[in-house]
Amino acid sequence: MTRQPSSARVTDCLLGGKDNYPVDSDLAKALMETVGSMRQAVACHEKFKEIALRYLVQQGIRQFLDIGCGLPSSAAPVYLLPSSMDVAVVYMDIDPIAMAHVRALLPNRRHHRVGHLHADLAQSEGILADEHVTGVLDLSRPIGVLMHAVLHELPDVDAYAAVRALAARLPPGSALSITHPTADHAPGPMSRAADLCAQAGLPPVTLRSREGVSDFLQGWDLMGPGIADTARWHPDGTPQADRTCVSYAAIAVKPETGARRPMTSESARSGQRLSLGALDQQTRPQTIHRP
């Protein structure tokens, strides 16, 4: 039995999962006692992951790099993307146990090309050149990079460099979907929660402000409501009902060189009512929508 908690297993515990140990549940309990809305916040975060993936699919993206994928959950791309849709997904995590679970538990879908990469985001220069990525993703076509609840585990010097290195190699039309914990709304409880994680042996947690999250996306076109509380990020502005979050969310698209324009609220709302069921019937993907 392990004596060391992991971020992936603590999250699993907060979601009511069973792939965790007492050391993980002890930390999860302490976090909930410190931040009263922690369990609801994690549920809210899972819901955003679904919203983000559906949104990117609606914009025509069919390739995904899921960085910090963690243990399999209902928000994993394989469960949200129709089995008949021709898509490619690479799951990546630094946690070898999480990657073992991903390989063993996520089902294979006939039209899904899938890769697995055990790697450290801080060593970002080699990620898109790794054969586990290049063998699955076409780097000449737009890629949706999912960086949900992972950047806070890196200090500023590594986090911003990692995003810059990945962004530089992504083709225009690619998207970044980011979530990030913050102390903007509950500085005392969130700072104490970060201390609990460090004391338990998890990577130090860097809580970033809205401006700090914005710095990850410099030069990219923000979609939907821009950078918003995770519970309030929705392409048509509809917040999640009865949800409390302690993190920010944002989705941004890499523009063509010299073509950066802000997305208007009207263009951000267009086309958002298309369901995944309807997408499953399409024979051609949509292009990235720009105003």
Rank of each mutant, 00 (worst) to 15 (best):
M1F: 15
A259Y: 14
P77N: 00
P171V: 14
D236W: 14
G126A: 13
R109V: 03
G219S: 06
N108A: 15
A259C: 09
V136G: 01
R192H: 09
Q272N: 10
K18I: 11
R3M: 09
A250D: 01
Q240F: 05
R141N: 10
S191P: 08
D158N: 14
Q199D: 09
L137W: 06
S7M: 06
S7N: 08
C13T: 10
D93K: 00
R243P: 04
V78H: 07
L65M: 05
A194S: 03
G201H: 11
I97Q: 13
G17E: 09
S73V: 04
M99G: 01
A104N: 10
L274P: 03
D86Q: 11
E153T: 08
D130P: 08
I61F: 03
L170A: 01
L27A: 00
L31I: 03
P171K: 13
P142V: 15
L176Q: 09
D12I: 01
E50V: 08
S83T: 14
E131M: 12
V150A: 05
D26E: 11
V87L: 07
I178G: 00
V90E: 02
D130H: 13
S267K: 12
S124R: 02
G70W: 00
P107N: 06
D86S: 13
M32L: 14
C197G: 02
G188N: 12
S37C: 11
R164F: 08
G258S: 04
K254E: 06
S84G: 13
P5F: 01
G173F: 04
Y79I: 09
N20E: 02
H148R: 05
P239A: 04
T238L: 10
